[in-house]
């Protein structure tokens, strides 16, 4: 299968484009001019440039989700959360999970800064530059990663249930820890453990519990290969960590 090569944008070019962006601007330079800025580049070989129609399709799909959630009015917490979950699903469905292009910071920098800058400004702000630059805090890179690691699989009845159930804090605990997020098995087990524990102790108690358990997972992972444990063993191990953390915090089932 031929890899679709996505446009890339270097860090300095992101800053230069952001300097020219108006906080109230709608649309993107790309959508208006139907061409990409000069600073954009592609991998020289190894695939075919993604067609413009696919880039505009990506923009349209995400814009629609934003509009459903209040765009252009500032989103409230629930709308922001709903946007994040829906956009995660859409990004994974449009880009796929196993394409080296989407592990690149410069690809996501281009998507955020050139294709969807108005949505980033709406969801965060123009001043939040880390949301445009590539990396784990990029407005869309983080959503794509969530979708990839928390996808329960095509045949699952509640395929995207974890994206909708987990709180922002829980999602950050998983996806901003490379030692956890690099392993789909470990990420899924931790997320499933969170869902079970939240039913038992209540969502409001979960922030403290999740932080304690995430720390324990990272410590245990140094001395034990957690990702290669059987699904049942890993599930049991994670559930036990939640139980222990709840016990130490003096929490009783809600």
């Amino acid at each position: 299968m031929i890899v679709k090569l996505f446009p890339r944008l270097r860090r300095a070019a992101v800053d230069q484009l952001l300097d020219k962006l108006e906080p109230t601007a709608r649309g993107s330079a790309f959508a208006l001019a139907y061409s990409l800025p000069d600073a954009v580049y592609y991998a020289p070989t190894g695939g075919a440039k993604v067609p413009h129609s696919q880039l505009t399709g990506l923009r349209t799909a995400i814009l629609e989700i934003a509009k459903k959630n209040g765009y252009p009015r500032s989103p409230d917490r629930a709308q922001a959360s709903e946007f994040d979950a829906e956009a995660s699903i859409q990004l994974v469905e449009l880009t796929g999970a196993n394409n080296g292009e989407f592990l690149r910071d410069d690809v996501w920098a281009c998507i955020a800064t050139v294709l969807l800058p108005d949505i980033v400004t709406w969801r965060f702000s123009l001043g939040a530059r880390e949301r445009y630059h590539g990396g784990i805090r990029n407005a869309f890179q983080r959503l794509w990663l969530r979708g990839v690691v928390l996808d329960r699989g095509e045949g699952h009845q509640e395929r995207w249930g974890l994206l909708q159930s987990l709180t922002e804090d829980a999602l950050v605990q998983i996806t901003e820890r490379p030692s956890i997020a690099s392993s789909k098995e470990l990420s899924l087990a931790l997320a499933e453990g969170w869902v079970q524990a939240s039913c038992k102790y209540g969502v409001r108690k979960m922030e403290e519990l999740m932080r304690k358990v995430t720390l324990q997972v990272r410590l245990h992972n140094e001395i034990r290969h957690l990702a290669s444990m059987s699904t049942e063993d890993l599930e049991g191990f994670i559930n036990q960590l939640f139980e222990d953390a709840a016990y130490r915090s003096g929490l009783a089932p809600a």
Binding site: N98, D105, P178, S182, H225
Partner: peptide
């Protein structure tokens, strides 16, 4: 266990396979 991971940075961003 022999794993292949990928992605820029100190840690792999994605573990692709684990052969036993």
């Amino acid at each position: 266990l022999v794993e292949v991971g990928t992605g820029a940075g100190r840690y792999p961003r994605q573990m692709l396979t684990c052969a036993r």
